[in-house]
Structure formats: structure tokens, C-alpha cells
Design a protein around this nucleic acid. Sequence first.
RNA 1: AGGGACGUCGCCAAGUUGGUUAAGGCACGGGGUUUUGAUCCCCGCAUUCGCAGGUUCGAGUCCUGCCGUCCCUGCCA
Length: 561
Amino acid sequence: MSPPEPLESPTHFIRTRIRKEVESGQYEQVVTRFPPEPNGYLHIGHAKSIVLNFAMAAEFGGYTNLRFDDTNPAREEQRFIDAIKEDVSWLGYRWQNECHASDYFETLYEYALSLIDNGLAYVDEQDGDRIREQRGSLTEPGTNSPYRDRSAAESRELFERMRAGDLADGACVLRAKIDMAAPNINLRDPVIYRIRHQSHPRTGNDWCIYPSYDFAHGQSDAIEHITHSLCTLEFEDHRPLYDWLIEHLPVPSRPIQIEFARLNIDFTVLSKRRLTRLVEEGYVDGWDDPRMPTLAGLRRRGFTPQAIRNFCTEIGVTKSESVIPYGVLERNLRDDLNARAPRRMAVLRPLKVVLTNFPEGEIEWLEAANHPQDPEQGSRKVPISREIWIEHDDFMEQAPRKFFRLKPGGEVRLRNAFIIQCNEVIKDSAGNLVELHCSFDTESRSGQPGADRKVKGTIHWVSALHAVEAEVRLYDRLFRVPNPSANKEVDFVEHINPDSLETLADARLEPGLDQAVAGQLFQFERLGYFVPDPATSPEQPVFNRAVTLRDTWAKLEKALA
RNA sequence: AGGGACGUCGCCAAGUUGGUUAAGGCACGGGGUUUUGAUCCCCGCAUUCGCAGGUUCGAGUCCUGCCGUCCCUGCCA
């Protein structure tokens, strides 16, 4: 049984538009780019963009570049560049070219010069506060800078001095000369170059002036012959500026910017600023903490690239802002893993059961299918002996009516083994549950005619003699509220869920699981999907729970209570 | 003097140039299969498209006016 085919991509406005353009012969091929700024790790929101960009290019016979938008050396680092490349690769995508906006610094500089020479840009020597004041407000037009009408020659000379390093940070900036009264604030003579005496991860100390996003992005697109520059909604207001620059610069192609809504998921934060805080202030264990919505975190949590791609396809691409329930992400993981993860038995909170009529010292090996729906996954032999561990939750002394598991006097089937009956509940002097004495029905072994006998419940177990002791980490949502960032008066970290990580030090796993390595995926039957943490070892196995199984009993139980 | 967007079922989301019964998925409810209360399989689930008018034989799709939500005043991206 192979994983379900990725769902058929539903159509969306970008695909529809591009298809139309391609069919009318506007483009020979579609070239896109994924343009992260290397100032943090990629998260699930970036995955949406990655999937979209690569899908559009692949669908229309083109390719996608990975381009680092590295125009602000103050916050960009090589380690982020490396991590981003690893994450995109892991997701399953191969970019055509690895590009960097910094590769184009020289060209961009020449473009700036041409703008100056054409009277479309000027060097402003005012400080940031002054420029801000003159920008006006949302309802009032801005006012012209006194430097606005200086000669092109003068601006050129000043700009050359900026580049030469003669001027201090903040001494002046290069501004596009557009319209200080424009209703769109981005058009009120935007700053396109600033001075930053700062070493750059790639260009070192070659430059002390750096282009702004607006001046670098569209031009980089044009240089790479990107046909469709897909970005999120907040850049919608920048499109007039994007187009203005493309129109007034001697660029080699004319890319089109199209905006779509960014991804939001409830109970999580998806802004790099906030994720950076979680990491830097130690609320989580790093960028790859399994509770983080980063690709590195999801990977460590046990998410598969396929599940993430399916998720990104399923949620669609529109211009309306939506919030996707966290459960949708989880379900995509379940759907993918259900199809392919081999099944194993593991007990998270062990309760000892003595099989009173099982011969002392004897070991029996039972056949267990690796996957109930996929015979191709074969089977394995699982040992059982006189003492076994069962899940603490699978026994109740005072059980409600609908409780199908073990209770005093009751019967239950041991998965892959036989039916047992609880004859005696052993407690210590303080009244604490110590162990259960059960007898088993010798005729009910799996595969034998007696196994057909119907009992309500089936529970998992692990032979005490053979069990692998392990640490298992259970994760819950990182935040307690659906929208941690909703209220600007309250710091989002106030909403962190104190119980987002539960460590079980005393889990007992089926033998063999001590040899598992990171990247392998298992379903621990009746519990969920688990994956070895990178820190696992045969001596000290550590597993992460990626996601639980659907649990209708838990729902029922809650409803009854 | 503000500008730019968005509003179709609880959550996503299709809806060709207006054309006759408003896709699909998830969630939810009911039933069946089952040695995972899992999976899987059936069945059900918007007389209605933010609201109000208008145009039309016919409107979610066109027009007008409201209402609501989001984004924009970094030398961040």
C-alpha cells in the first residue's frame, strides 16, 4: 500500500491566470522564485509559498530559483542560508539556480545611477526623523524634501561618495523621486539605498551601501527573468512601486507581481519576529523544537514532506485571509503516515500484568502484521512471556458502561496474542494499584479458531522480559489561545501553554525499537505516530510523538463526563 | 485626501463571458466492516452566496449604496 496520491491540485486564481497567459502565448515558460531573507528559519507559511512557486513553474514547463533576499546585512547570517537550503531540499524541491540579491549589487548600483541621471532619484541628506515627518500621514499628503530638486550631477556625486564609504551610516539616503502627495505612501519618494557600514555574509566589506527591499526585489526578478513574482498580500501596496521601477530601469525583462494571502494557523504564531523571540528567549529548545511550526521543528516532530505538501495544496491559494485549524495540519500527517508507517506496540504508562496460567520462564513468539491493510509490509515475531506491560489507561477498576477495555472480572483481547481475563487486582498497603493477575484463554491465540470469539476491546502490550525502556516526549500546542497575537496589549508569550511538552521517562517499547534511527516513522498501535528523536540511541532510546490517532473514545468519554 | 484588498455552510474553497438543482475537502451526525474505540465503506449536511436596493425572462456572478475585517506613515522584508 503506497501513500495516497497527492490530492489533485484544486484550481486557484493564480493558476487560472497563468494558464490563460500561457495559452495565449504570452510566455514560453513560467519562471518563479522563492525569495527568503536569511534571517531565520523557514516555517510552514513559507512552505505554502514554496509549494506554490515550484508547482506553478513545474506545471507550465519552467523552473524555480532559490533566491536569498540578502539586502540587510544587519540581520542576515550564513547559518540561516544553510538551514533554508536544507529545508527546501527536505521538502522535496530542487531549485534551478541558487541566487542572492547580493549577486546583483553592482548591477543594482548601476540601475540607481541611471535613475539619478534621469532625474528620477536624489540623495536626501535629512535624517530619518525628518524624512518621516515629511512623509505625511495616512490622510495627509507629504511634503517635498529640500534636497528633492537638487541636480542629478550633485546626487550622482553624493551617491558615489556613499558607495566609496565617505559618509557615515544615516548621513543620507538615495530616494526615488515619485510623488510626495501620492495616496499610496510607498510612492512618497521611497528610500531605495541606505548606508550601512556592516559586513555582509556574502559580499563581506565590499559594500557599505545596501539597496532596500523595494529596489532589490523586482530588479532581481527581472535580472533572473522571473515571469511571475508571487508574494503575500502585504506587498500589494508595493506593486505600483514595483512596476514603476521596472518601467523606469533598463532591466532585461518585465516580471509580474501577484499577491496571495499568507497562511495562518490557529494556536500558533507564524511570524519570523515572534519565532525568533521564542528561540532567543528560551521558550523553546531552538529552531527545531518539535513544538515550533518551523520546517525543522516539524521534521523533528515527525512530519513528512509529503504531509506538508498535501497540507499546502489542500488549503488552497486565495486573496482572502483565512485561519486554518491546527487539526488540519495534523490530519494530513495522519493520512500520510497511516498509509505507510509500520505498526509497533509500545506502552507509554506501564501497568504490570501477570499471566497466571502462562508457564514460568517460557517465551512464545507471536506473528504480528506490520500493517493491517498492507500485506506487502510483511510481519514480525513478537515475544510474550508471563509478565507483560499494558497501558495504565486500559484498566479501570470502576469502569463506565461504554468502557471496552480491562476491568475486574472482564475480558479483553491482547493485540496479536490472545484473550485475557482480569482475575485479581493487586494493591500495596497504601491502596495503590501494583499489578493485575490475569488468566489467558489458551484457545484464543491469533490464527486459531478460538480467536474468533468476540470481545469488546483489544489492547496493546509489551513483554516485560523483552521491553525496551525509553523516554517518550508528548507534545501539545505551544499556545493556549487560538490567536496568540490578537491582542496587541498582551505579549504573545503570555499565552504559551505550560504543558506543551510532557516527558514520559518510563515507556516500554516492543523489542527492536531501540535500533530505530531518526527519520523512521512508526505507528504505536492505538496511540499515534512516533518518531525517534535525533538524540535517540540504542542505550537511551528517545521517541517523539508526532500526532495521536483519532480518538473517538476520548471524545465520547468527555461527552459522558 | 487617504489608499489598497477581502467578505459563498462551523473551517477551508470551487464557482467559465449572468442561464435553469450553489463543486469538493475538513469538521460534524447516522449506519456498516474491523484482533488498533485507528483505517476503510455508505448516507446526511447552504431554497442560499455580508446587508439593502436596482438592471434582467433570469444574478453568487452586472450597477448603486451601506456594513464588517485585514494591510499601509522602517534608512525591515
